[in-house]
Amino acid sequence: MASAVRAGSRLRRAAEGRELEALPQGLRDELRAALASEGSLVPFSLLRSLHAALRDAGSPLRLHELLEGSEIHLPEVPVPPRNPELVARLERIKARLANEEYRRMTRDVTGRETNGSLAEFGRQVRSVQAVVITIFNFLLTVVAAFACTYLGIQCVFAETAARVLSAVIVASVVGLAELYVMVRTLEGNRGKL
């Protein structure tokens, strides 16, 4: 905590000159001794006495005018020596926390390196498998629609060209309907891909 002021040029001039002649001789000598000391430190108690003496003497000088350019002296706080047991304990705790943080950061690195690639491979296989099944289902549906129409319309049309044409039309309509259903399903699953 501050207990002194490092005197500025204004306070020095006042102490050396005739501005403080109205003050008691003992107070002036004490102020000069403080200004002559190392660092020109003037204690707060002396400043309080100076302020009271200026007020009692009816001097036109004010303390804040005398302290212009002065700085509050903040003494350095002595740092107590650290307990070696405490320092060693703190170092052990820091090392343990650093190891835990390192393990947490690298926990998934080794596991995902082998399992991650296998998991990714499995995911890709399932995706390809779903696409192959969808294409197989589409082709099977179109071929089945064509065959059913070709064989089922045999009673109505005796000519082969008419039966093939009607089977192609029905297979195309079934194929377009199947494509429509696939596209709608893919749009619905787009967020899951």
Rank of each mutant, 00 (worst) to 15 (best):
V125F: 03
G17F: 03
V156M: 12
G8I: 07
G152V: 08
I169C: 12
L41I: 01
E65H: 14
E71Y: 07
E85S: 10
L90R: 05
A171C: 10
V174A: 15
R163Y: 09
R12A: 10
E16K: 02
A98S: 12
V142D: 07
S59K: 10
Q129Y: 01
G191W: 00
S127L: 10
A144F: 14
A34I: 01
R18C: 05
A95K: 11
L41Y: 03
I93Y: 02
E178T: 15
T106E: 07
E120F: 13
A4L: 01
A52Q: 13
L47N: 05
M182C: 08
R6W: 02
R104F: 14
F44G: 05
A161H: 12
D29R: 02
S166G: 12
R104C: 04
L176W: 08
F44I: 09
I133Q: 11
E68N: 10
R62D: 11
G191K: 01
N83G: 11
E113C: 11
L11V: 09
I93Q: 04
G122V: 08
S166R: 02
R163C: 12
R123H: 14
L66D: 08
E85G: 15
S59V: 10
I72V: 14
R96P: 01
C148M: 13
G26W: 02
G8C: 10
T106F: 15
R103M: 11
G17W: 01
A147R: 05
A158G: 15
A22P: 06
G116E: 10
E100N: 06
R13N: 07
S127Q: 07
R32M: 01
R12N: 04
S37A: 14
E120G: 14
R163V: 15
V131I: 01
E65P: 04
L67R: 06
T110Q: 08
A52G: 12
R103C: 09
R184H: 07
R96I: 06
A162N: 10
L97K: 02
G58Y: 00
G116L: 05
A167F: 04
A147Y: 06
